[in-house]
Structure formats: structure tokens, C-alpha cells
């Protein structure tokens, strides 16, 4: 039963979602919407599962004074503090909603969470530079082609090359060439990958719906 019930649920939901893509009306469409609501409800409850697990693991680390336990203190304090601020903001009579601009929860969101997230995103720029440096080294034929293509794409997009060669080549030759590389060879490659992905998703979904692929429910026959 431990295997059969999840497989049956997977089969029924998979078939309903697949058919409702083609048949929008009637009981199929309604069932699909009901299943969608259930997914949202399960996910909402599952958040607590994760949060409590995080708190439990952090507290155990602190209690046992494991390696780097100080970070667990930061996690536990931030987690409990944010939940407390959210509860207070949600229930205090002076606020209409926990999202009000004056709530402590909103303060934490705007002044800690958002800047930290933006900082992480900004780091991406430096990683792009270091990754590009490695990727564009002309170690073999493919890497050399990539280097040449990227030289023209970057030079055309900036548009540095058109500015340099303006006295010799009039117009936007390099910008147009960069556009051609992006529109034809790059798009062709991306579409080939996209077709493969679409077929892969289809075959993978069929394996899951038919119960051939069972790793996600713990595997086994």
C-alpha cells in the first residue's frame, strides 16, 4: 500500500492535468482547479514543516556546540524574530495588515531582507566576469569559435566596434552582425535544446504517470 497509493494518486492527477490541457471545460477543468487549490494548501502547510525542521537542526547544533554553531544562533534569532514581528504586525490593532508600511515586519523586509537579496544578486556581475574569463580561453577549436563569436557580440552590443571603425565602416555593421549571431546561430541552438527539453519533459512525465519512474516516492518495485 505504501507504494500503490502514491502511484495511484500520481496516475490520476497526471491524467487529469494532461487531459485538462486539451479539454478546458466540464468536470475535468473543475477537477484540475480543485487539484490546483489542494497543491497550494499542501504547500502552505509544508512551509511550516521546513521552518520547524530548520529551527530544530539549528537548536541541536547550538545545544551540541557543533562546528560553526554561531551561524545557527544567527539563523534561530532571525527566524524567531521575524516570525514574532510578523505575528505582532498581523494582530496588533494599530495595523490593518502585516504589510502596512509602518509594521516591524515591513521594516525587516525593506531594510534587511531586500538589501541582502539585492546584494546577492549584485555579486552575480563579478561571477559572470570570472566565468566568462574561463569560458573564453581559446583552449580548443570550440572555445576559439566561442571567443570569436563573443568578441563580435560584445563589441557589437556595447557598441564599441562601430565606434572604433566608424571612419572606415559607416553605419552599424558590427551591431547588425552581433544581432545576426544572436538571431540565427544562437536561436537555432537554443531551439534545438528547447525541442529536446520538451520531449524530455514529455517522456519523463509519462514515466512518472505510468509508474515506471519511482525514485521520487522512494523507489522500489
Amino acid at each position: 500500500m505504501r507504494r500503490e497509493v502514491p502511484l495511484l494518486i500520481t496516475f490520476i492527477t497526471g491524467v487529469v492535468f494532461a487531459l485538462s490541457y486539451f479539454i478546458p471545460g466540464g468536470w475535468l477543468g473543475q477537477t484540475e482547479r480543485v487539484f490546483g487549490d489542494w497543491i497550494t494548501i499542501v504547500q502552505a502547510f509544508a512551509v511550516w514543516l521546513g521552518v520547524l525542521n530548520l529551527l530544530k537542526i539549528s537548536l541541536i547544533k547550538i545545544q551540541r556546540k557543533e562546528h560553526d554553531w554561531g551561524y545557527s544562533v544567527v539563523i534561530a534569532v532571525c527566524l524567531v524574530g521575524t516570525i514574532a514581528a510578523g505575528m505582532y504586525s498581523g494582530f496588533a490593532p494599530q495595523f490593518e495588515s502585516f504589510r502596512d508600511p509602518e509594521t516591524p515586519f515591513n521594516f525587516i523586509f525593506r531594510n534587511i531582507f531586500a538589501p541582502l537579496g539585492a546584494t546577492m544578486f549584485a555579486i552575480l556581475a563579478f561571477y559572470v566576469a570570472s566565468a566568462s574569463y574561463r569560458a573564453f580561453r581559446a583552449r580548443n577549436r570550440e572555445a576559439t569559435i566561442l571567443l570569436i563569436a563573443s568578441f563580435f557580440v560584445m563589441g557589437g552590443r556595447v557598441p564599441l566596434l562601430d565606434s572604433i571603425f566608424m571612419p572606415i565602416i559607416d553605419g552599424t555593421f558590427f551591431a547588425d552582425f552581433a544581432g545576426w549571431i544572436m538571431s540565427y546561430p544562437v536561436t537555432a541552438g537554443q531551439r534545438a535544446i528547447a525541442i529536446g527539453i520538451a520531449l524530455g519533459i514529455m517522456a519523463s512525465s509519462l514515466r512518472v504517470i505510468l509508474g515506471i519512474e519511482r525514485s521520487h516516492i522512494g523507489g522500489g518495485n
Binding site: 561571477y127 566565468a131 566568462s132 574561463r134 569560458a135 537554443q190 535544446i193 528547447a194 529536446g196 527539453i197 520531449l199 524530455g200 519533459i201 517522456a203 519523463s204 519512474e213 525514485s215
Partner: peptide, 26 residues
């Protein structure tokens, strides 16, 4: 299977499963 992220993985990782290969891997 995110085509926009594949170049990043190709640049930074030793091996990359491109799109459909992820689904074929299992």
C-alpha cells in the same frame, strides 16, 4: 532544463547535462 542557465553551468562546472540529458539521466 533552463536554457538561459545552461551557459553558466557549462562555464563553471566540469560536466553539464544539457536539457534532455537531465531527464534521461535517471
Amino acid at each position: 532544463a533552463e536554457p538561459t542557465q545552461l551557459p553558466f553551468f557549462v562555464a563553471a562546472c566540469d560536466y553539464t547535462l544539457l536539457g534532455e540529458e537531465l531527464f534521461a539521466a535517471s
